[in-house]
């Protein structure tokens, strides 16, 4: 009975009081030469989109959002979303993107063959492209996506939309990724730099 109680006691609602994370004066000061990483600054980035991309509503999950229009009413959108790690493996995400354009998932071994080298914020990264048919609209659709882990956050860069338009925008998208930079975090107690899409 005692064992059963010990095992089940951890599955009850708990109420407690804790010191707020990163409280002033605690923990002890860092040794010199170490940057202060304790401030929980909001993820932010700088980037320079092509002139023909229109800024779009960022909503609550995106830090940058753009709309791209093409001929014959074709549309595509670009989003930059930071998510706390691990945010799924590369394989999980690639298969999720493939599923969004009606493609079957791939195995881990096939992943390397799909990756295209790109540069994000001066670092090497991998771009994945999925071209298929949108399961809801039945139209040819395409996704270009890359992800980059940094400081406990995984950054997702994604362009999705009509297949022909996305194909034509691939080079601008790759150039856009090169323009991304991450500003230094603001000192503790000051607001983080606003994202500048």
């Amino acid at each position: 009975m005692a064992l059963a109680w010990a095992g089940c006691g951890r599955e009850q609602v708990q109420e407690y009081q804790v010191a707020r994370e990163s409280p002033p004066g605690q923990p002890p000061a860092l040794p010199s030469g170490h940057s202060d990483m304790t401030a929980a600054a909001a993820p932010a980035l700088d980037c320079k989109p092509p002139s023909d991309w229109q800024e779009a509503d960022r909503g609550q999950m995106r830090v940058a959002s753009f709309r791209v229009s093409g001929g014959e009413g074709q549309q595509a959108e670009v989003s930059v979303i930071p998510l706390p790690e691990p945010a799924g493996t590369v394989l999980d995400n690639v298969n999720r993107w493939r599923g969004q354009v009606g493609l079957a998932g791939v195995a881990e071994a096939e992943l390397a063959g799909l990756a295209q080298p790109v540069e994000i914020a001066g670092q090497a990264a991998k771009l994945y492209e999925a071209v298929g048919v949108h399961p809801d609209t039945g139209k040819r659709a395409s996704i270009l996506a890359a992800m980059m882990p940094r400081d406990g956050v995984v950054w997702f860069f994604k362009m999705s939309g009509d297949a022909d338009l996305v194909a034509g925008q691939k080079r601008p998208f790759v150039e856009f990724l090169k323009t991304v930079s991450f500003p230094e975090r603001a000192p503790a107690g000051q607001p983080g730099a606003a994202p500048a899409p």
Binding site: E11, V13, E15, Y16, A19
Partner: peptide, 25 residues
Amino acid sequence: AAGADTDNVVVIPQRLLAQEKTIAP
């Protein structure tokens, strides 16, 4: 927030969440 640097926290574990019922701490 319970004060300048403390928080009151109420935590509901996964096993109770999975039962999909009403919990009134």
